[in-house]
Design a binder for these strands. Structure first.
Length: 286
DNA sequence: GGTTCTCTGCCGC
DNA sequence: GCGGCAGAGAACC
């Protein structure tokens, strides 16, 4: 277990440097501060964080924009404050980071179009939502209406489009994946989180079906053994059931801990992934 | 459109 | 574990 986080104080320091830096830091500079060659530092950093230094830095910048926008700052100011040299550069990459324009983001998703559908699977109702970039929500529950309300709460201003017939094939693919996670999901995901959350989610996606990790193990895997609570928080913030397999995180003592979509569903997912027969009475439906 | 930087794979120590 | 290099691709101007 307590896999020692192989000599990564350098990485932690680099992360702090990136956080504090006003302007982008070149790889060579980070590496020399870490006392490593650029190529080796790059490898070590990615192994520890799940992101390359460059990806990590842009995730941080996007965090800052989100923070500035959430604080009600003007869009141009927010982009500038976050460390983007020019707004055109920000807009080039923003679709990927925010999933929508800054104006739309600030307005709670207004103008964004989110297609969704609710289906039945063996775990009850399942909602799948797509932002145009990728799947932005997969949620499970007993009551389909509640799932839709939850989506609406999350994107209060977005235009939610349901019942799109062209959407069925994709939903079927997601349902198939939920029924058998080991098959993998061959669809792009629209994952949106803070830099830290994205690291945790990356690490989660590397946990193979049928196995579990503890929160502290996960914290070690992202190179921050002291951040167990933050890791648990990031797991809890996951919006993509099964695709980001937060159900594979359990307490060290074997306790299942919690699950956004119901601890019974977590139990059932884990049973299936271990090749055990499905249990009756888990799903709300039949 | 050219240059610089990033990123990865591979090999050597 | 670490360095270095090559080649492809992305970022930047």
């Amino acid at each position: 277990m307590s896999a020692k986080v192989s000599g990564h104080p350098a990485v932690a320091r680099a992360c702090r440097r990136l956080r504090d830096a006003e302007s982008p830091l070149p790889l060579a500079e980070l590496a020399s501060e870490a006392g490593l060659s650029p190529s080796h530092f790059h490898r070590v950093f990615k192994a520890a964080t799940g992101l390359t230094p460059h990806q990590y830095a842009s995730a941080l910048r996007a965090d800052r924009v989100r923070g500035e926008l959430a604080a009600g700052r003007g869009i141009t100011d927010a982009i500038h404050e976050a460390g983007y040299g020019s707004s055109s550069r920000f807009y080039e990459g923003v679709a990927g980071r925010l999933g929508m324009t800054p104006k739309a983001y600030r307005a709670g998703g207004s103008g964004a179009r989110i297609r969704f559908a609710v289906a039945e699977c063996s775990l009850g109702a399942i909602l799948v939502a797509h932002s145009g970039r990728g799947i932005c929500a997969i949620s499970l529950g007993g009551d389909p209406d509640a799932l839709v309300r939850e989506l609406q709460d999350r994107f209060p201003q977005a235009e939610l489009v349901g019942g799109d017939p062209g959407f069925d094939a994709m939903v079927a693919q997601v349902v198939g994946f939920v029924e058998a996670p080991s098959l993998g999901l061959d669809l792009p995901l629209d994952i949106r989180g803070t830099a830290f959350q994205e690291r945790v989610w990356q690490a989660l996606r590397k946990v193979p079906p049928g196995s579990t990790v503890s929160y502290s193990e996960l914290a070690e895997r992202i190179g921050q053994p002291g951040s167990v609570r933050a890791v648990a928080g990031a797991c809890a913030a996951n919006r993509l059931a099964v695709a980001v397999p937060c159900h594979r995180v359990v307490r060290r003592d074997g306790d299942l801990s919690g699950y956004r979509w119901g601890v019974e569903r977590k139990r059932e997912l884990l049973r299936r992934e271990r090749g055990m027969p499905p249990r009756r009475g888990t799903n709300g439906a039949g």
